[in-house]
Simulated assay, not measured.
Amino acid sequence: MRLSNSLIGLINFLTFLLSIPILGGGIWLSSKANSTDCLRFLQWPIIVIGAAIMVVSLAGFAGACYRNTFLMWLYLFVMFFVIATLIGFVVFAYVVTDKGSGRAVPNRVYLDYYLEDYKGWLEERVKSDSYWGKISSCIRDSKVCGKMGRTYGGAPESADLFYVRRLNSIESGCCKPPSECGFVYVNETTWNPGGGLMGNLMDCTRWSNDQEQLCYSCDSCKAGVLASLKKSWRKVSIINIVVLIILVIVYVIGLAAFRNNKRMDNDEPYGMGRMTKAQPSVIQF
Rank of each mutant, 00 (worst) to 15 (best):
Y75R: 08
F41G: 03
G63F: 00
F92V: 10
V90F: 13
R108M: 10
V78Q: 09
R108W: 08
V55Y: 07
L76N: 07
A64C: 08
K99Y: 02
L58Q: 02
A33P: 04
A93E: 12
T97Y: 00
V55K: 07
R40V: 03
Q43W: 11
I46Y: 04
L86M: 14
C38M: 08
Y66E: 02
I53Q: 05
R103L: 10
G100Y: 01
A62S: 03
M72W: 00
Y66M: 08
Y94W: 15
R67D: 05
L39E: 03
F70D: 09
V96N: 01
A93F: 15
I47Y: 08
P45S: 06
K32C: 13
L74F: 06
V82A: 14
N34K: 13
L74K: 00
T85E: 11
V109M: 06
R67F: 02
A84F: 15
V96M: 02
C38R: 01
W73S: 10
I53M: 12
S101D: 15
G102C: 09
Y110D: 11
L74S: 07
G63N: 02
I49F: 11
V91K: 13
L86I: 12
Y66N: 04
S57H: 04
N107Q: 09
I47D: 05
R108V: 12
P45A: 04
F80C: 12
F89Q: 09
V78T: 15
V95Y: 06
T85H: 08
N68C: 01
I46W: 06
A93K: 12
W44C: 05
Y94M: 15
Y94R: 15
G100C: 05
N68H: 01
L58E: 01
V78L: 14
L74A: 08
S101W: 11
P106K: 04
G102L: 10
F70C: 13
M72I: 01
R67H: 06
F77A: 13
